[in-house]
Amino acid sequence: MKKLINSPGGVVGDALRGMAAAHPSLLVRDQVVYRASGPVAGKVGLVSGGGSGHEPLHAGFVGYGMLDAACPGEIFTSPVPDQIIAATQAVDGGAGVLHIVKNYTGDTLNFELAADLTEGAEVATVLVDDDVAVQDSLYTAGRRGTGATLFVEKMAGAAAEQGTPLTEVARVAAEADRRSRSFGIALTSCTTPAAGKPTFDLPDDQVELGVGIHGEPGRRRVPHTGARELAEVAMDAVHGDLPLYGDLLVMVNGMGGTPLIELYVVFAEVEAYVRAKGARVTRSLVGNYVTSLDMQGFSVTVCHLDDELTRLWDAPVETPGLRWGR
């Protein structure tokens, strides 16, 4: 394993030092990343967080039009309640705080504990669960939260920025999640700094279908044929869960180790698939946004847009990881 780190245990802290140095718009305190400009009076505060290793998610999405604070845990480990409590109290501008939580046992437990223990601020929570590779059932942990987290953070962030009250911001966030589905495919395993070797072994001619964003193995392996076939597998899974129609926001997301040129090759196939189903990609995002360290592979996230969500997506955003309109 070769990584650009100083020590396995120090990665998160070192990277946060780098973020703070690179982005004067951010403030890092006690492993929480805030807007340097402080809480906005009368605006609903948005707090998200989760294990590190998914950069730019979440800390790269702190800023105007998106999050007020992000709580990065250790690599692939959800943050602890103390971080979340501190973040929640700090960003409350008097209009309450929305917790945006990816659906994982660790994340939900720690955010729940934090919400229970937070004093002063009114807290609402939205659970993101978009990954169709996981069965959603009362008898499982439910679908994982993956790529749609970015959509929820962007859309809820825009709503909050416009002065929308907490219950409404929470409704928008839940709506963005409800309308989104994802599927991920790995060409290689990632290597966590702590383990120092790949989480799983994948032969040079196989790919892993239905992976999450924590280096966990997927549902099954198949031979690697090509970009078109993989795009089809992913889109079949998405379309099978929530049929494609109308106007779609589509993200082709890299897992961290996949170069942009390959993501564009995949996007071309995904867009053709959508068109063949009679639907339209009206908004898109291609790049490494919700990653798994150095994993090679991609995920597709599709969101069924309506006028409201389109407007919220288009609204100005100014964060290190996503920026337009200002």
Partner: peptide
């Protein structure tokens, strides 16, 4: 453990 670990096992 609740305050320092994170993940699923910390709070559990």
């Amino acid at each position: 453990l609740i305050r320092k670990v994170g993940g699923a096992s910390g709070p559990l």
